[in-house]
Simulated assay, not measured.
Amino acid sequence: MGAQDGPTLITSVQRALRLLEAVSAHENGAPAKQLARETELPLGTAYHLLRTLVHDGYVRKLGDGGFVLGDRLNSLHAAGNAQTLLSRVRPALAALRDELAGAVYLTLYEEGEIRVAEIVDGPRTPRVDLWVGFEDAGHATALGKSVLRELDEEGRREYLSRHHLADLTPRTITSLPELLRRIESPPLAPAVTDLEEYALGTVCVAVPVYRGDTLGSVGVSLPAERRTQLQEVRDRLVPLAIRVTRNLSLTI
């Protein structure tokens, strides 16, 4: 039975993809009979596959019986575009990783949260153990503080009103006035640092980037004993951020 299931499954996938292509050709929707005719599928098979696609959100059935592409497929398209943009900046991030011997991170501020979009590390440049999600640690990471620094005062306070300043290490800044003071006047501006505030034994420096109107940050983490090199890292990050912003903002 296993040998028969493979070809049958492949055929079903091929038919479903043909139906999706046919649906996408009709902006205002098309009925099942028309889609079956265009894809040269038996009407019963077309109905069955369309019901499955509707159930999974890839296709949506209109009130008049026509079928159009569903929100889930649109989400996949958006995700594909985002991956294409990220692929444009990975080589630059990887080159910086190799040059500075440190893991490189890219974050984006989306839907009110600071989220990791990409990490470029390696056997000799391991990433920081993200034991607390960035959504809950924006105040303790250079990447998060870089985003907060770029927000206007209202946006910054709105974010901080929704996020507790958790005490992650003995060095974490948990005083809101002190955090705001350090964000507004960092010694390595426009870079912001994390001096073992997220994880003991690790320091990080980050600068802002943009994807169109979406704010983000790019940063490098290093062992704490390399703290004296943060100025050098900052000087390499600033021009890199300009290239990353340019590539992330290109129209696909």
Results as ranks from 00 to 15, higher is better:
Val205Ser: 01
Ser221Leu: 10
Glu111Asp: 13
His164Arg: 15
Asp213Leu: 14
Pro223Ala: 08
Thr193Gln: 06
Pro186Ile: 08
Asp98Leu: 07
Arg246Lys: 08
Tyr47Lys: 12
Ala101Ile: 10
Glu118Arg: 02
Val209Glu: 01
Gly29Arg: 06
Glu118Cys: 05
Ala94Tyr: 05
Gln34Lys: 12
Leu49Arg: 07
Val147Gly: 09
Ala30Val: 00
Asp152Ile: 07
Phe134Leu: 14
Asn28Leu: 07
Glu38Gln: 11
Arg236Asn: 13
Thr125Ile: 02
Val220Thr: 10
Val59Glu: 01
His26Tyr: 06
Gly144Lys: 03
Asp98Glu: 15
Asp64Glu: 10
Ala199Cys: 07
Thr8Ala: 15
Leu93Met: 12
Asn28Glu: 07
Arg18Cys: 09
Leu176Pro: 05
Ala82Val: 05
Leu230Glu: 06
Asp71Met: 11
Leu85Pro: 03
Glu196Trp: 01
Tyr210Lys: 04
Glu40Asp: 10
Gly201Thr: 06
Arg226Trp: 04
Met1Pro: 10
Glu197His: 05
Glu38Trp: 00
Ala224Ile: 14
Asp194Glu: 11
Val23Gln: 04
Asp56Pro: 05
Ala16Glu: 13
Ala166Lys: 15
Arg182Thr: 09
Gly155Val: 04
Thr45Asn: 15
Gln83Asn: 13
Ala22Ile: 09
Leu248Gly: 02
Ser87Val: 00
Ala46Val: 08
Leu230Tyr: 01
Leu179Trp: 03
Gly2Ala: 14
Val116Ser: 02
Glu135Arg: 14
Leu50Ser: 11
Arg51Thr: 09
Asp167Trp: 14
Leu180Glu: 09
Ala101Arg: 15
Arg90Ala: 01
